[in-house]
Each structure stands twice: as C-alpha cells, then as structure tokens.
Amino acid sequence: MNPLPILRSIPSHASRVSVIALHAFTQLVRMKVFYFLGFFAVILIASNFFNLPQHEGPESAGVNILRSIKSWSLGAMTLFSVVLSIVATALLLPKDVEDRTLYTILAKPVPRLDYLAGKLIGVLLLIFVSLALMDILMTVILHLRTNMVLADQVAAAEARGWPAGDIQILKSDILAQGPTASLQGAVFSVFLRSTIIASLALLISTFSSSTLFTTIISFLIYFIGHFQADARAAYFSQEAGTSDGWFTKMISLLVALILPDFQIFNVIDAVIEGQVMPVLILGKLTLIGLFYAVFYVIASWFIFAKKEF
C-alpha cells in the first residue's frame, strides 16, 4: 500500500478539523461560558480574605489559608471542567441537528471523523483556555499570599530565636503549600480528566436520543468511574475472604473493563495537600488520557459514520 496519499491528506484533514474546532469554540464562547471566570475570580479573592473559624497555632498561622486557596480553586476548576465537558459535548450534535448546520457540513466533502474530532477539540480548547486563565489567577494569588505568610512566619521564628536550620525547615514547609510545579500538574490532570469525560460524552451522544440522556449517563459514568479501581481490585483479589464470590468477581471485571478509571486522577487532592507529583506520573496520566480520548473518538466515528439524519 502506498502511504503517500494518506500523508498528503493529513494537512487537509488538520485544516478541516481546526475550522470545525474553532467554530465549536466560538459557538460555546457565545453561550457566555466565560462568565464562569468572573465567578471563579470572586471565589478565589473571597477565599483569600475569608477568616474561617478554625484553630491555628502561632507556628502554622496562615498556612491553612494557602491550602484553602488551592482547595477552592481546584474544586472550582474540577466542577467547571466536568460540567462543561459533559454538557457542552452533549449539546454539540443535537444543536447542529437543530440548527441544520450538520446537514450543510455533511453535504460537503467533510469526513465524519474530522467533524467529530473538530467538535471535541473545540470543547477541549474552551476547557483548556478556561483552566489556563483560572490557573494563572490562582498562581498569582497563591504566590502573593505565600510570600506574605513566609515573611510573617520567618519574622516570628527569628523573634523566637530559632536556629537557622529550623527556619529553613519552616520555609520549606510553607513553600510546599505555595504555587509548585506539582500544582500545575494537578491543573493539567483536571484537564486530562475532562478530556476523557468529554470524549466519552461524545461517544454517548452519537447514539443517544436526547441531550438529557447523554448528560445523565455521562455524569453517572463519571461518578461510577471513581469506583472502577475498587472493582478491579476486587477482581484481582486472590486472598480468601477478600473477594465476594464468582458473580461479584465477574461483575467487578465487567465494571473494570467497561468504565474508565477516574480514581487515578484523584492525585489532585494529594497535590492540594502538599504532595509532590513526579513528571513521570504526569506523563503516564497523559498517556492514559490520550488512550481513552483516541479510543472514544474512533468508537464515536464507528457509530456516527453511516448514521442517517
């Protein structure tokens, strides 16, 4: 087989996908999705000034607020990205059918795979831009607040006559709660999880009868997907008394094979708590995210390829 025609067609595919992606992006922007960013900014600024009633010793004063800023920010990013990736993707195909845009596009020599990939990339682009903006805002505020806490704590430690080594330990403890590279990795993990859930929603929308159905099923899968790892562990559990019989094992295997594992993306919480995320682990998460996205897009195309409207 001569690979040249396929290679020659790549630029035209890429061009078509990018046009559709930009169109989907614009379509979503017009839905005033970015208003959420204003809401996020308010949450972030408020979390910076909240004086929550909690116990704080003099040696940890201010550190909790850093954790609080990260919790609020990544929590808001998680909610925004999951809801947007499901709802926006579920809306795309029915909206194009309703507007009759789909007929115009498919009447042209646009491969259906390009159409689906373009739509998905449009949604992901919107999520990526939103997360990037939220990340910038969070990093700036966290950076400023970390410096304030650090200055206060170091001054207090010096006043108490702490040795230099102890002050260094204090500094490292505070900086671990500030804007670290792992925190950026956590934000990227939020994006990866959105990629999986959006591509899954795309697959469901190719055979679903309504937007509501796609949305509900996607949310259910997202929720149950957090227990996929437990189902897998139950299947592989060899020790007596840890498995619950043949039937449970088979059900566990089915759940493990069908549903995506969203639990691995719970690393976000550990990073908020100050854990370090190695680059290799982020790489592996990216790999698994790509695997799901590519598989779901191809599966969507398989269902959508000959579908009649």
Partner: peptide, 13 residues
C-alpha cells in the same frame, strides 16, 4: 473520599 475526586479537600474544609 473516592467519589469526590478533586473536591475532597474542599469538603474537608
């Protein structure tokens, strides 16, 4: 703990 992925620390707050 598992189902609140990404929101756990916020709920803990």
């Amino acid at each position: 703990a598992v189902s609140l992925g990404g929101l756990r620390t916020l709920v803990a707050t």
